[in-house]
Each structure stands twice: as structure tokens, then as C-alpha cells.
């Protein structure tokens, strides 16, 4: 089901915005991505969940920013010149995601996406599948809804 959801209605293909978190490559469906911007000042929000890095000023409105590595249980890394904030949208909720680098927009053929069970660990609920491009390049497709996590663990 997750797989079907990922597809663009046209010809079983899905376009993703690919980015790096440490050594691995991940992707969000391009339809969820609103913009990509460089790192700006992030204001810490007291009492917020630990994976929420803070808020930024996005052209006058206040946008929460999630530390994606922390959310996925990956080790922290210093910010570099390549660090980006990917602004995504799910329903009417907009959130920024901090990623180590954006690698590009990639078109994945539905046949080359394996369902989430292929990667089986505690984070599997954040993952909808793994896409394969070229020979050795794997892109882990993320479940935005679970990452934003409106259904759990806010409080």
C-alpha cells in the first residue's frame, strides 16, 4: 500500500528529492517538498520534543524545524556549507528538515522500489521503501507522516 501511495499517478514513476544524512541517501516525494533553503538562525523552543531543533523565520512566518538525523536515531554531525533545510508539507502542516546535503531530484521506476520490510530495524516505521537507481545507488524513501509524528509523541 505504501508503495502505491508513493507513485505518481502517471506511469508508475515517482520523483523524489534526494538528500544525504551521514553516509546514506534518503528521499522525500517531490510532491511534499515545498522548497530547499540554506541554514539560517534556528531558535530553540523550550519544552519541545528533542527531535525538534527549533523554529526559523520563513518569510515572516514561524516554521518548526526537525533535526532529521536525531529523529531517525542517526549520529549527530557538525553543520557544513552543504547543510540544508528542506521545507516539506503534509496536509496543512509545514515543517523544515535539516539534512546534510541535497543531492538532487531523482526519478524512480516503481519496479525498482522495494517495500519497507527490506530494511528491518526500529526505524522501519519511518521508512516506506528503498529505491534503486543505477547499479549501487540506494535511496531510502521516508514516511513523512510518521516523521512529523502528529499521531504520537508530541507532548
Amino acid at each position: 500500500m505504501a508503495k502505491a501511495e508513493l507513485m505518481n499517478v502517471v506511469e508508475g514513476e515517482v520523483q523524489v528529492v534526494a538528500f544525504k544524512l551521514r553516509k546514506e541517501e534518503y528521499g522525500f516525494n517531490i510532491l511534499n517538498v515545498k522548497e530547499i533553503k540554506g541554514l539560517t538562525d534556528i531558535t530553540r523552543v523550550p519544552f519541545a520534543s528533542d527531535f525538534i531543533k527549533g523554529v526559523i523565520n520563513l518569510r515572516g512566518s514561524v516554521l518548526p524545524v526537525i533535526d532529521l538525523k536525531k529523529r531517525l536515531g542517526l549520529q549527530d554531525m557538525e553543520y557544513t556549507d552543504d547543510t540544508r533545510i528542506v521545507v516539506v508539507r503534509e496536509d496543512d502542516l509545514e515543517v523544515g528538515m535539516i539534512v546534510d546535503a541535497v543531492t538532487g531530484v531523482i526519478t524512480l521506476n516503481g519496479e525498482h522500489i522495494d517495500a519497507a520490510k527490506a530494511v528491518d530495524n526500529e526505524n522501519s516505521r519511518f521508512i516506506t521503501g528503498v529505491g534503486k537507481v543505477e547499479e549501487e545507488r540506494l535511496i531510502i524513501l521516508l514516511n513523512l507522516e510518521a516523521i512529523i509524528g502528529l499521531q504520537d509523541e508530541i507532548k
Binding site: T43, V45, P46, F47, A48, I52, V55, N57, G60, V62, L63, P64, L93, E94, V95, I148, L150, I154, K155
Partner: peptide
Amino acid sequence: TLGKLLAGLKVISGATV
């Protein structure tokens, strides 16, 4: 407002730019 994701925080009533 801080939006849905950050709603209901103690002590913080909102944000400003």
C-alpha cells in the same frame, strides 16, 4: 502561532519575528 506541531507547550505562548 507556533503551529500544530508545537501546540500546547508550557510557558511558551507563541513566537515573534
